[in-house]
Design a protein around this nucleic acid. Structure first.
Lengths: 195, 195
DNA sequence: TCTTTTTCTTGCCCGATATCAATGGATAGG
DNA sequence: CCTATCCATTGATATCGGGCAAGAAAAAGA
């Protein structure tokens, strides 16, 4: 149940066995079935979720009713609406399971206590945010002033196939900021170029 | 010289007077004249910069020679190529002063020592990264699937005028991922609508 | 102040992508 | 196994924004 979390933490910092045992007590396991919501637009995001297994997607629905994918999440990643979590304001995001998934949840009080008691966890989160920040900056750079084809190529390069192949195309299209039709045509051209 | 840094840190965490005195010893002041580089593409980013005064811009030049603005920085903000800083790989970014500016620099060794000695500084950076991450996610949401006009409107709303007005339009255009010509037309339409 | 350089604006045309619509496949659930 | 729904594909057309060029305006530097 805690393998992925253990791996994730220890990839960045070191905990004593006691610290790790303490850590585990702070999380609540939760299962989600495919299509089930972890968070719905309008609700306050009260827990951070670590994904032990499965795949999720975070998205908004804009005024015109168009879905915009903000983030994907797979085993070993964290997912939440951080803004809502920190401010207690209603979330603008939906977070939904793409597959049956297993999560570990932690609420704000427990999380703060954990960081206080186990100093390394604060560092762990700082490093994760650093990395997430860097990844997001790359994404922005890849979104600005590029054609649909370039965006797609970069995504294919940067995303491991083991994750990539589990995402429906229309969500990839939304993530890239193009329509499903455009993505379909782009893929077609790529395929014919590689003959 | 350290007013902005003091304000920034104490907006998020609390330092004892001794910690603050220690903190100050870790930074090196630096002045940049307008147009001067803080970092050039190809160089390794060896220092984090805190902006005491002035305005900077971080951008890449892509294959076609087009400038892409990744980030602006003003007094009270940090700026650096974090990826290069952490990995010691050559940076893909240029960071340049838009105005004569005053910076406080800190290199990796000093920064790590500072975080080790002054625990609150680690928290300070974690909180800053959190906020930066949230802001970047908003930016992505605002970039995906919106017209040039919408992008501009959102930017005007979210950026304080005291910063906004100091940025040349062609850099704002690049930041939004549109051409200067398009931005000019968008502004024109907005102006005529508000009669 | 005057000159030079940079930045912004405007018009025209073109191309990439959105939009609309129709069809065929895949998938899930009864 | 069958049916309903969702998803991907393809074509036809419309639209937004890009690229180019010329000139105006503004700002920097002397």
């Amino acid at each position: 149940m805690f393998e992925q979390l253990y791996k994730s933490i220890h990839a960045h910092v070191t905990l004593t066995p006691e610290e790790w045992e303490f850590c585990k007590t702070k999380f609540i396991p939760k299962r989600l079935r495919r299509r089930q919501y972890l968070l719905q637009q309008g609700d306050v995001c009260r827990k951070l979720a670590f994904i032990e297994k499965g795949a999720l997607v975070a998205y908004t629905i804009d005024d015109k009713g168009t879905q915009k994918v903000i983030q994907f999440g797979f085993e070993g990643w964290w997912i939440a609406d951080l803004y809502s979590f920190l401010t207690n304001e209603p979330s603008a995001l939906n977070i939904e399971a793409l597959e049956d998934s297993e999560l570990l949840l932690i609420d704000k009080v427990e999380h703060e206590e954990l960081m206080e008691q186990v100093h390394a966890i604060g560092n762990y989160h700082r490093i994760l945010f650093q990395n997430a920040f860097i990844a997001l900056q790359r994404r922005v750079g890849n979104t600005i002033g590029t054609t649909a084809g370039e965006k797609y190529n970069t995504l294919v390069e940067e995303f491991p196939a083991s994750f990539f192949n589990r995402i429906p195309q229309h969500l990839i299209a939304s993530y890239l900021g193009v329509t499903p039709e455009t993505l379909s045509r782009v893929r077609n051209q790529r395929a014919s170029q590689r003959d």
